[in-house]
Design a protein around this nucleic acid. Structure first.
Length: 809
RNA sequence: GCCGAUGUGGCGAAAUGGCAGACGCAAGGGACUUAAAAUCCCUCGGGGGCAACUCCGUACCGGUUCGAGUCCGGUCAUCGGCACCA
């Protein structure tokens, strides 16, 4: 069989017959399978795309054969930084390169032979899509979920431009090598923190990998404690967040983040120079480095003091880079005796270390003592446990308005504005009279202009486009300016799954009636690297749009699977710079798309991935040919039938066992074991074929079922074989074989007998034997008797279907 | 650094706490063939033994259990994420 030829043949026919069109009349049987859409940064599909889409498509076909009306759309996440950088380097416009890449990828995806329904394709960079991205932004804006505030960006002083984290290498600009600093700009945010609690709580109802849920939980980072107000000698106040209010009598100093707005005000003239120098140094250190717990703690004294609200002690105010402005209140109290970091800091700068917690049993007197214990040197709280004290202290402070119990989240609001060209324009107008004004919905989309100078020179590229920037205020009609920033591409990808089922609606982002039937997504498949960002943002969008009345469900993705990563043959992540990139095209053109996806499914554990190794693909081709020879041979057999004997029973057992296991394995994306079972079936059929007398009818039934089992995995080959056998077309609409349990029932089975956990014998027992009988058969066995010898049997453990373990001494 | 994961033959990998290595690849041997390819059959973790058999073996150290690749504690190594790559 020429795989390449039959793939062409069936793809042509499938396309002509439009067999993969989603049947909207069967929405009640819908199964929405979604693969994370691709980013068209390279011109071609890479192995990772194949590994995501090929097996997922096989899963979708499996669901289809189970009677579901499968919805499997495809599209492109088309805005983003790489296209812009490519343009800066080559002069090719991002729109041109992106659309060209998309065209190539569409072509390749079609050659893959997936059951994607292209009628629902979306491309996020097209106005008919981003119009609705802007509309959603406006809905969130009107609901108070989008706002502006100052936030730091990576800034290259030489290129005079904002840099993405990936463009910063060891604190220096990847393009020109100069030092990168952090600089504050006014930026747009989505208030995802308003949903922190629900985003955390609803994780419990999702069928997602536990590790992904754990990562989101940590990312959201809920902690309960108290917010406590300190008053400075200058009269200014600030708040600290602490989970250990029980240690407050031991405060040795407080630390503000270097970016804290009070710093400039509080710093005394004699400390000004030192503080300024320290702030500058901090602006050059990345946040990841700042959070490192092994890095030496540094700080600078402001010269100012505040008062400890519980005992009026005079406390020095420092700044230090281990305090992050965006987390909590951007200020912490330092309790040197009971916190590692604070202890190191106090030792280094020779600050007060005062013990206020003792271990409950007095067993540990070393400092720092970071465990819970009993309060001492704490006035009226002496003797109270930490657990009680951390609440009691805050409640006491609450009476004087100086404290409150508070739940804090590590989760920060989502920074969505980018000072870049290739993204979705933000639909806001800045009017000198009216201030911030939302673009009226009827004026959407705010189109991204084509002719824009996007070379980096310190300004948002759109700022340099007169045609784009100048407009009139929708409220007062005065000349006004558009917002020059574009949206983070994660905004575009946070709702595409809502657009797919109603992709061509030009009146609305989506028809609520349709999507409330089509969503949530039943199976979402994509990389684990999205665990915290994309997957959290999409959940946030769903919840926000639900609260705005558009959606009737709480979560976008009921069930989630992460495919693993295919690494280069050297075991490292594929990258051009390493030169270890494997191109799927070479294999696909040589062996065909079926063989290639079959190999991807057989050679790796789907959720693990691993280093690429091409040696197995030839063997896959051999297997497919061996299977084909068998089917064709059976086709020409006489249809004689015969009394069911031992050989037939064995074949029927293997057939039905295979069906059962393949069904279970496909359900959980265990493609490699499903294929292993199918290989066993083929081996069993060959074995039966060697019998002198055989049942032609049985063989034909086996062959038909074999082809059906293979249909999701190698769709073109199965379609061809199905057609050769004279079976109905298309094969993916035929029911998946069902296991007939009666053939799995055996009269007896073998199990192992251990003596002191070492296998000594194999015994055969009747299938209905109870534990007592099994025990007796085991003890009667000669090999077991020899092994026990003169010892006494202490205990016999019988695990039916598994083994017997005899404990003897 | 923090968070999450992974570690099993020469290789890809299987194993609801129950016979480690299913299914394949590679390798070796054999059949068919004038020959080759293709195909088919057998062997295939390591040590010891003529053999029956026996000992060791799932990164490393320890623990729980009749029984641990699997559970618990610790160590090492590798990978993913850490908020402007997506």
């Amino acid at each position: 069989m020429d795989f390449i030829e039959i793939e062409k043949k069936w793809q042509k026919k499938w396309k002509e017959d439009k067999i993969y069109s989603f049947n909207t009349a069967r929405r009640d049987k819908k199964y929405y399978t979604l693969e994370m859409f691709s980013y068209p940064s390279g011109a071609k599909l890479h192995v990772g795309h194949w590994y995501n889409f090929g097996p997922s498509d096989s899963f979708a076909r499996f669901k289809s054969m189970q009677g579901y009306e499968v919805f499997e759309p495809m599209g492109f996440d088309a805005f983003g930084l790489p296209a812009e950088n490519y343009a800066i380097k080559t002069g090719i416009h991002p729109q041109d390169s992106t659309l060209k890449n998309i065209a190539t990828m569409e072509h390749q995806l079609q050659a893959m032979g997936g059951m994607f329904d292209w009628d629902y394709e979306v491309k996020t960079c097209m106005p008919d899509y981003y119009k609705w991205t802007q509309w959603i932004f406006l809905q969130l804006y009107k609901a108070g979920l989008a706002y502006r505030k100052e936030a730091p960006v990576n800034w290259c002083t030489s290129c005079n431009t904002v840099l993405a984290n990936e463009q910063v290498v060891d604190g220096h600009c990847e393009r020109c090598g100069s030092q990168v600093v952090r600089k504050n700009l006014t930026q747009w945010f989505f208030k995802i923190t308003a949903y922190a609690e629900e985003l955390l709580r609803d994780l419990d109802k999702l069928d997602w990998p536990e590790k992904t849920k754990a990562m989101q939980r940590h990312w959201i980072g809920k902690s309960t404690g108290g917010e406590i107000e300190f008053t400075c000698e200058s009269g200014d106040t600030f708040r600290v967040f602490t989970t250990r209010a029980d240690t407050i009598f031991g405060v040795s100093y407080v630390i503000l983040a270097p970016e804290h707005p009070l710093v400039d005000k509080l710093t005394t003239p004699e400390h000004k120079a030192e503080v300024e120098a320290y702030k500058l140094a901090c602006s050059k250190v990345s946040e990841i480095d700042r959070m490192s717990s092994t890095r030496e703690k540094t700080g600078a004294f402001t010269g100012a003091y505040c008062l400890n609200p519980v005992n009026g002690e005079r406390v020095p105010i420092w700044i230090g880079d281990y305090v992050i402005y965006s987390y909590g209140t951007g200020a912490v109290m330092g309790v040197a005796a009971h916190d590692e970091r604070d202890y190191d800091f106090a030792k280094k700068y020779d600050l007060l270390i005062k013990r206020v917690i003792k271990s409950a049993d007095g067993s540990c007197d070393d400092l720092p003592y970071c465990e819970y214990g009993v309060m001492v040197n704490s006035g009226k709280f002496d003797g109270m446990t930490s657990e009680e004290g951390k609440v009691a202290v805050v409640k006491w402070l609450e009476e004087s308005g100086k404290g409150e119990l508070k739940t804090n989240y590590r989760l920060r609001d989502w920074l969505i504005s980018r000072q870049r060209y290739w993204g979705c324009p933000i639909p806001v107008i800045h009017c000198p009279h009216c201030g911030e004004v939302a673009v009226p919905e009827e004026d959407l989309p705010v189109k991204l202009p084509y002719n824009v100078d996007f070379t980096p020179d310190g300004k948002s590229p759109l700022l340099k486009s007169e045609e784009f920037m100048n407009c009139t205020c929708p409220k007062c009609g005065a000349p006004a300016k558009r917002d020059p920033d574009t949206l983070d591409t994660f905004v575009c990808s946070s709702w595409y799954y809502l657009r797919y089922p109603d992709a061509h609606n030009d009146k609305q982002a989506f028809d609520p009636e349709i999507i409330n039937k089509m969503l949530p997504v039943d199976k979402y498949i994509g990389g684990a690297e999205h665990a915290c960002m994309h997957l959290l943002y999409a959940r946030f969008f769903t919840k926000a749009l639900r609260d705005l009345g558009y959606l009737k469900f709480d979560e976008p993705f009921t069930s989630l699977v992460h495919q693993g990563t295919i690494l280069g043959p050297d075991g490292f992540k594929m990258s051009k710079s390493r030169g270890n990139v494997v191109s799927p095209d070479d294999y696909v053109s040589k062996y065909g798309s079926d063989a290639f996806r079959f190999y991807l499914m057989f050679g790796f554990s789907y959720t693990e991935g691993g280093p690429w190794n091409s040696s197995g693909i030839e063997s896959i081709v051999k297997f497919l040919e061996r299977m084909e020879r068998l089917v064709l041979k059976i086709k020409d057999m006489p249809s004689s039938s015969k009394q069911i004997g031992a050989a037939e029973k064995e074949l029927l057992y293997t057939l039905n066992y295979t069906i059962k296991r393949v069904t279970e394995d496909m359900e959980v994306f265990s493609f490699n074991t499903a294929i292993a079972r199918i290989m066993e079936l083929v081996n069993a059929m060959y074995k039966y074929d060697a019998e002198k007398e055989k049942d032609g009818e049985l063989m034909k039934d086996c062959a038909d079922k074999l082809v059906l089992l293979l249909a999701p995995l190698v769709p073109h080959i199965a379609e061809e074989l199905g057609s050769v056998l004279g079976k109905p077309y298309p094969i993916y609409r035929r029911p998946f074989p069902k296991c007939e349990e009666k053939w799995l029932v055996k009269d007896e089975y073998e199990l192992a007998v251990q003596v002191n956990s070492r296998i000594k014998a194999k015994i055969v027992v009747p299938v209905d034997a109870d534990n007592k009988q099994i025990e007796q058969i085991a003890l009667d066995c000669n090999a077991v008797k020899d092994a026990i010898g003169a010892m006494n049997v202490v205990k016999v453990i019988v695990i039916p279907k598994r083994l017997v373990n005899i404990v003897a001494k």
